[in-house]
Computed example of a mutant assay.
Amino acid sequence: MTPAPVDTWLLVDAGNTRVKWALADAAAPLGSWLAQGAMAHGLLDTLIAEWQAAQAEQGRVPARVLAANVAGGGVRAAIEGALRVCAPGAALEWFTSLPWRAGVLNGYANPAQLGCDRFAAAIGARALAPGRNIVIANCGTATTVDAVTADGRFIGGMILPGLRLMSGALARNTAQLPQIDAGTVLPPVFADNTHDAILSGCLAAQAGAIGRAVAAHGGATCIISGGAAPLIAPVLAVPARHVDNIVMLGLHAALLAGGMDETC
């Protein structure tokens, strides 16, 4: 028998490469998950089984779902199809970038054009470091480096190719594709072979962008997240707090803050 919906939330972060999710008790503190998971887009056909297993183990079906999607219509359709099976009674909201939400004022020239993942990450960072100037570096398929002021204004940021994209672009012309994963050994700054030189240069470019943003934002608190963060964080010249999945934390913070508010 399928459990009845209870005061439980399902958070979904559909990024360019993977779909991450977390199940949270509505009364739990920020970042406290009952269950969580992640899968590549090519494995989305297993999403129903994974969610059903988590719900059966916890004895809960979510009453509310908040999902951020930057991966396009196909991924959105797959998530919606899984929810029709796993949580047919849940209230589903697709997270979008609003002028104001959860204590963050969206300062983009056109607030709706800000990527919803970047807005969620700003909300998450603000919840983790309230009252501080913050730089959020989210290092995934693309690397985004964004700034939030101490009073909660998202003032903008920068987007550059992620570490794998950047190294791949160079390697296509050198036949020296670096293997980049969580176990990659960091090369010396001055590498003695092309493979390591590509990786060293790309790490320096990523770290330099983040360091420049921190300096421009008055020595702000830096939060780094994303799949490439374990490689980039050790080469930063500025202190940084490594946070797993800042977008998911932002979605959670948005729900903990209550309803949507487009005014300030």
Rank of each mutant, 00 (worst) to 15 (best):
T2N: 10
V6T: 15
D7H: 14
W9N: 14
W9V: 12
V12E: 11
V12G: 15
D13S: 12
A14P: 09
A14N: 14
T17K: 09
A22T: 13
L23V: 15
A24K: 09
A24M: 11
A24H: 08
A27Y: 08
A27I: 07
P29W: 05
W33T: 12
W33K: 11
A35D: 12
A38Y: 05
M39A: 14
G42V: 11
L44G: 05
T46R: 15
A53L: 08
A53K: 13
A54C: 12
A56L: 10
A56Q: 09
Q58L: 15
G59R: 05
V61I: 15
P62D: 10
V65T: 08
L66S: 03
L66I: 12
L66K: 04
N69E: 01
V70R: 03
G72R: 08
G73I: 14
I79R: 05
V85W: 10
P88T: 08
G89Q: 15
A90K: 09
A90E: 06
A91S: 15
W94C: 06
W94I: 02
T96E: 13
P99C: 07
W100P: 00
G103T: 03
L105R: 13
L114T: 01
G115Y: 04
F119R: 00
A125C: 01
A125L: 04
A127E: 01
L128V: 01
A137C: 04
A137Q: 00
N138L: 03
T141I: 05
A142T: 00
A150S: 01
R153D: 02
M158W: 03
I159S: 03
L160A: 07
G162F: 03
L163C: 02
R164L: 00
R164S: 02
S167P: 01
G168H: 04
L177W: 03
P178T: 00
Q179G: 02
Q179R: 07
I180P: 00
D181P: 07
A182D: 09
G183Q: 10
L186P: 02
D192T: 10
N193H: 09
N193D: 11
I198C: 02
I198Y: 01
I198P: 00
S200Q: 01
G201P: 07
L203E: 02
A205N: 04
Q206I: 11
I210W: 03
G211M: 06
G211H: 08
R212M: 05
A213F: 06
A213N: 05
A216E: 14
H217R: 14
A220M: 08
C222R: 05
I224L: 13
I224G: 07
S225V: 07
A228D: 14
A233R: 15
P239W: 15
P239H: 13
H242E: 11
D244P: 06
N245S: 14
L251N: 08
G258H: 06
G258R: 11
G258W: 10
G259K: 12
D261C: 11
D261R: 14
